[in-house]
């Protein structure tokens, strides 16, 4: 699915990733944890192709192709989905028309027919119910006036509609209460199958109580410094990042 080899990347001349390696196979769930400023969000942005994130070195293959050869929207319609930590508002553009365009762009890429308005509406309603957002959220402007939790659920709804093959969740749990967290987790779990992979970027172990990861990686200083199973996350919860070495002692879990 995804193979990251020795990735070095920077933002505004500040080096953030310094030789990151990661392989994600179909059906796997990888959690990436790490102290603040380790480069977790940067990884998501680099993979999705955000402007301003410069790749200095290394390569990434996505479904066997060179990821860096693709535009942002090509990566998206090829099945790479990033759930944003802070989704932006687009006033006046309804969630409905936005997602319809988005879904159809992906379908076109796959050589499928565009969905009719009725077909799309049916799917959208299902997804909306699944993340427990009232149906009028489909009519409202994209993220316009949504609360933090509503924005996160809106991201998961889009993920469900788009049926991507690789989902990167950037702190989709931050700022959520237990109920909302469960909604997000259920949304993700409902999408798990043998072909779809997940990268879950999180600061807290909490989300991993609900979404069981196959691997847990610790990202520090721009590279993965430790890899384990779900028990590694629990250890961080208890001990913080101190066991990584002296310099992380103060870092909060």
């Amino acid at each position: 699915m995804l193979k990251i080899n020795n990735l070095h990347a920077s933002v505004e001349d500040k080096v953030i990733l310094t030789g990151l390696n990661l392989e994600v196979k179909p059906g796997e769930v990888h959690a990436i944890m790490g102290p603040n400023g380790a480069g977790k969000s940067t990884l998501g942005y680099v993979l999705s192709g955000r402007d301003g994130y410069e790749v200095q070195q290394g390569d990434v293959s996505f479904k066997g192709e060179d990821l860096f050869e693709m535009d942002i929207e090509e990566r998206a319609s090829n099945g790479l989905f990033l759930a944003f930590q802070y989704p932006v508002e687009i006033p006046g553009v309804s969630n409905m028309e936005f997602m319809k365009e988005s879904v159809n762009a992906t379908r076109e890429q796959r050589g499928e027919e565009r969905l009719s308005a009725t077909e799309f509406l049916k799917k959208a309603k299902e997804a909306c119910n699944q993340v427990q957002l009232p149906l009028d959220f489909l009519k409202r402007g994209v993220n316009e006036g949504f609360s933090g939790g509503e924005k996160k659920r809106n991201e998961i709804m889009q993920m469900i509609l788009l049926q991507p093959s690789l989902c990167i969740l950037d702190e989709s749990d931050s700022g959520l209460d237990v109920d909302a967290l469960q909604v997000v987790a259920n949304g993700v779990n409902s999408q798990r199958d043998s072909t779809r992979s997940f990268i879950i970027i999180t600061h807290y172990q909490r989300l991993l109580d609900y979404i069981k990861p196959d691997f847990v990686h610790i990202l520090a200083d721009g590279k993965i410094v430790k890899t384990g199973d779900a028990s590694l996350a629990l250890r961080i919860e208890k001990e913080g990042y101190a066991f990584l070495g002296k310099e992380y002692e103060g870092a909060s879990a």
Binding site: S48, G49, R50, D51, D71, I72, E73, R75, A76, S77, F81, L82, F84, P87, V88, I90, P91, G92, V93, E97, F98, M99, E101, S102, A105, T106, Q109, G141, V142, Q158, L162
Partner: peptide, 25 residues
């Protein structure tokens, strides 16, 4: 805004036209 639209698979033309249309709604 442009990045969000493109991350969801829209090309820049479509994205701009959608944002501008939203602005004019």
């Amino acid at each position: 805004q442009l990045f969000l639209c493109r991350q969801r698979g829209l090309n820049p033309e479509k994205a701009v036209s959608m944002i501008v249309n939203g602005f004019c709604k």
